[in-house]
Every structure is written in structure tokens, then in C-alpha cells.
Amino acid sequence: MTRPPLPPFTATTAAQKVRAAEDAWNTRDPERISLAYSEDSWWRNRSTFVQGRAAIVDLLTQKWERELDYRLIKELWAFTGDVIAVRFAYEYRDADGRWFRAHGNENWRFDEDGLMTHRHASINDVAIEDSERLFFWDAAGPRPADHPGLSDLGL
């Protein structure tokens, strides 16, 4: 199984990989998302460490049970060969209706088939008021092409 674009990355293919990841994560479908990772993919997500697709599915399932109305924007930060660095922000609400914006960075490493073998994610949550929300599009779908990215929003 291959997941183009494949390394070594160019500026264009790295940006395509980032947008494909963003679109997939915005579906909030853990099974679908897990297919972008190698069978033994290794993750650090905040302070949680997991390995393998089944563990990734479990982590993401639990994540979206807590993080409701999730909307994510990713932006390419840097790339070389088989590595991509991403910065991102996402908004979600908790079960009590409080809104948050999470900011973070991810470092990704890919195998020759374009599957991610390593994901290191550092994430910080900031409480926001409903009036401070910036990410508006239909839930569980991709960000529209005309919706501003992180740099355009000043994030």
C-alpha cells in the first residue's frame, strides 16, 4: 500500500501531504486516518505514547469523544527528504460547552511508501470564548478552499 505523495518531498509535495492529513483528520474517522500510518507507527501525542494502528484508532476515538465539534488547520513548517514539520491549530468544545483552541507542532517521518512511521506532537490548549472562534465550516468535513489558513488568521 502506498500513500502518495512519496518522499523525498519537495515544497509542493510536502504541502500536499500536509493538506491531505488535515482533510483526513477533519473527518474524525479514526479507522480512515490510521491508514496513513505504517502498521507499527510510533506516536508521541502530548504525554501519551502509542505504537501501531490499533492504538492510533483507540487514541483518536477517545480524543473525539472528549473534543467535540473539532476543526483543524495544519500548515507546512519545514521539510527535508522523508521528514515534514507541521504547525497546527484546532478548535473544539468540551461536553460542558466550553471552547478551546489547541496550538501545536508535529514532526513526521515517512517510509518509502509514504506511510508515516513516526509522529511527535506537542500540543497546548487555550480556553477561548465562543466569540473568539475562528474556524467555521461544516463539521466532519474538509476546510473549504476559501477559508483562511493559520498564517492568514495571524495564528
Rank of each mutant, 00 (worst) to 15 (best):
Y70M: 14
A95K: 12
D69V: 06
L115Y: 02
Y92V: 00
V57S: 09
L68C: 06
K63H: 14
T61D: 07
T80P: 03
N105Q: 14
F88E: 02
G97A: 02
V86P: 00
H120N: 07
A89H: 02
A127C: 07
W77F: 06
F88V: 01
R66M: 04
R66E: 08
Q51P: 04
Y92N: 00
E106P: 03
S122G: 13
A121S: 13
N124V: 14
L115A: 02
A121H: 09
R87C: 02
N107I: 15
L68I: 08
V57Y: 07
R93T: 09
A102E: 13
N107R: 11
R93Q: 15
A127H: 06
E91Q: 14
V50Q: 09
V126S: 05
R98F: 01
G97M: 03
I128W: 00
F49C: 12
I84S: 02
I84F: 02
D94E: 09
D69W: 03
F100S: 00
T61V: 09
E106A: 13
I56Y: 03
A54W: 09
A127T: 06
F88H: 05
F100C: 00
D96L: 10
T61A: 12
R87A: 00
L60N: 07
A89C: 09
K74S: 09
A121K: 11
D69Y: 07
D82W: 02
A127K: 05
G114T: 03
R93H: 11
F49P: 04
L60A: 11
E75C: 01
K63E: 12
S122C: 13
W99F: 15
W64P: 05
G97P: 01
D94K: 06
E112Q: 12
D125F: 11
D69R: 14
A54V: 15
A102V: 15
E67W: 03
V126K: 04
T61N: 12
I123W: 11
A102M: 12
E112A: 14
D113F: 08
A55R: 11
E91W: 04
L68F: 09
L76Q: 06
I123H: 09
A102D: 13
I56W: 04
D96R: 11
D82H: 06
D113Q: 11
K63W: 14
A102K: 06
W99E: 06
E65H: 11
G97I: 03
A78W: 03
K74N: 15
I128D: 00
F88S: 02
D94H: 08
E91L: 09
A95L: 15
E112P: 00
H120C: 03
L72W: 05
W108C: 06
D69S: 13
D111K: 01
D113N: 13
Q51W: 04
A95E: 13
A127V: 10
T80G: 10
A95W: 08
D111A: 03
R93K: 14
V86T: 10
M116Q: 11
D94I: 05
Y90I: 02
E112K: 03
N124E: 10
M116P: 04
T80R: 06
F100Q: 00
E106D: 15
R109S: 12
I123L: 15
E106G: 09
L72Y: 10
H118T: 12
T80C: 07
N107D: 13
R53Y: 04
N105L: 15
L76P: 07
W64L: 10
H120Y: 07
M116H: 07
G104R: 05
V57N: 08
D82T: 01
L60C: 08
G97H: 02
